[in-house]
């Protein structure tokens, strides 16, 4: 579904990604793990067009992502749940969800998708008229995921959905990722909770200092000595 090959990217004169090659197949869930500052967020931002790729190719279902303007990426079926949630804090939960369905093809199915999101997160239905900035961390994450689902995506990009949440809430977020997978969504997820994320994904890539160091099935990586030592503290 998504294929990156030899992608370089950065900020000004600083290069954050070097020659990244990565693939996500239809129906898969794939994780990207790595230390802070490795370039995981940058990778997500390149895919959704927020920063340009300096070289390399990116395709989504054989359509060229590099040539697609940033605001049209969502039309190709890619929805990005950004790092730190980035809700519209002074708007209600429902208005946030409405913005997720901004593109015309999603607007037409707004009512139906809203029900879908509210069924997935009954909490959001209760809080529909509350300002998003006043939600708890876990609720904000649900709202952010719900907002991304409103566009009816094929591929969901999740950037550290469990960051800053209490352990119980983290459990629920991973639970949710399982539920989302059952709805035929393809998922690319960045996570610090390596142990937990490897239990919900099929494959993973290890990103270090902007380069992909390792990749393999979730099983292989959870058995890998180095991964266990560096990222799981075992």
């Amino acid at each position: 579904m998504l294929a990156l090959s030899g992608v370089d990217a950065g900020y000004g004169s600083f290069q954050a990604l070097f020659d990244c090659t990565l693939e996500v197949r239809t129906g898969e869930a794939v994780a990207v793990i790595g230390p802070n500052g490795a370039g995981k967020t940058t990778l997500m931002r390149v895919i959704s067009g927020l920063i340009p790729a300096r070289s390399g190719t990116m395709t989504m279902q054989d359509l060229d992502l590099v040539a697609t303007p940033p605001h049209d990426i969502i039309r190709l079926g890619i929805a990005h749940v950004p790092e730190n949630r980035r809700l519209f804090p002074r708007m209600t939960v429902e208005d946030n969800l409405r913005m997720g369905a901004y593109i015309p093809m999603a607007r037409a199915r707004f009512g139906e998708r809203l029900e879908f999101v509210y069924d997935l997160f009954p909490r959001m239905r209760e809080r529909r008229n509350q300002l998003a900035g006043t939600l708890s961390g876990g609720e904000q994450q649900m709202c952010a995921i719900g907002r991304a689902l409103m566009s009816g995506p094929k591929l969901l990009l999740l950037d550290e959905p469990s960051a800053g949440l209490a352990p119980v809430v983290v459990e629920r977020i991973f639970e949710l990722i399982r539920v989302i997978r059952e709805r035929d969504l393809t998922v690319l997820i960045v996570e610090q909770n390596v142990q937990q994320v490897l239990q919900v994904v099929d494959r993973a890539y290890v990103l270090e200092a902007g380069s992909i160091r390792m990749s393999g099935s979730a099983r292989e990586l959870s058995d890998n000595e180095e991964v266990r030592r560096l990222y799981m503290g075992l």
């Binding site: 959704s48 605001h71 519209f88 002074r90 208005d95 913005m99 907002r147």
Partner: peptide, 24 residues
């Protein structure tokens, strides 16, 4: 309206509206 809500949203977070498919 959608457009009006988008105008409010863009004033709260310019970058994210691009992800929502809005041309700033």
């Amino acid at each position: 309206s959608y457009t009006g809500t988008a105008i409010r949203a863009i004033s709260q977070d310019r970058e994210i509206m691009t992800l929502m498919g809005v041309q700033q």
